[in-house]
């Protein structure tokens, strides 16, 4: 069992084409000793969930700048449940107004990060909450 590593899928749903933020997070997570599956931009929630399933990840980290988080993030958590992936920790980052956070958390996004969050905080949260 010595070889167990935390596996994280870093994914960008939606149509915006910037993945700088997601890449920074991916590198920080790698440097924290996680195995990061990086899938690039413009993924559908279906693609994200299928990838999470095949890669058997412990965490899905969603990154989104386009403002569609209120529909796309909950869509991912819903599909994860449908596929029986109940132990996957889902976190989200992006330009997300404070007012949206409670409903996202209610939809199963465990933690939300807005721009400027130190990556160390994300690492700590994952370590403390991963199942």
């Amino acid at each position: 069992m010595a070889e167990k590593r935390i596996r994280v899928l870093v994914a960008k749903p939606g149509l915006d084409g910037h993945d700088r933020g997601a890449k920074v997070v991916a590198r920080a997570l790698r440097d924290a000793g996680f195995e990061v599956i990086y899938t690039g931009i413009r993924l559908t929630p279906e693609q994200i969930v299928e990838t999470a399933l095949q890669e058997d990840v412990n965490v899905v980290a969603l990154s989104l700048l386009s403002g569609a988080h209120n529909t796309l993030f909950p869509e991912v958590t819903k599909l994860l449940k449908e596929k029986g992936l109940n132990d996957v920790l889902v976190i989200g980052g992006g330009v997300i107004p404070d007012a949206d956070i409670p409903s996202l958390k209610a939809a199963g996004i465990a933690d939300i990060y807005t721009p400027g969050t130190p990556t160390g905080k994300i690492v700590e949260f994952i370590k403390a909450n991963v199942k």
Binding site: R30, G33, F34, V36, Y38
Partner: peptide, 17 residues
């Protein structure tokens, strides 16, 4: 770090589904 970035899937997204 013992971590890794596994990025091969980026090139395979159109068969991923």
């Amino acid at each position: 770090s013992g971590g890794a970035i596994l990025g091969d899937r980026i090139r395979m997204m159109d068969i991923a589904m």
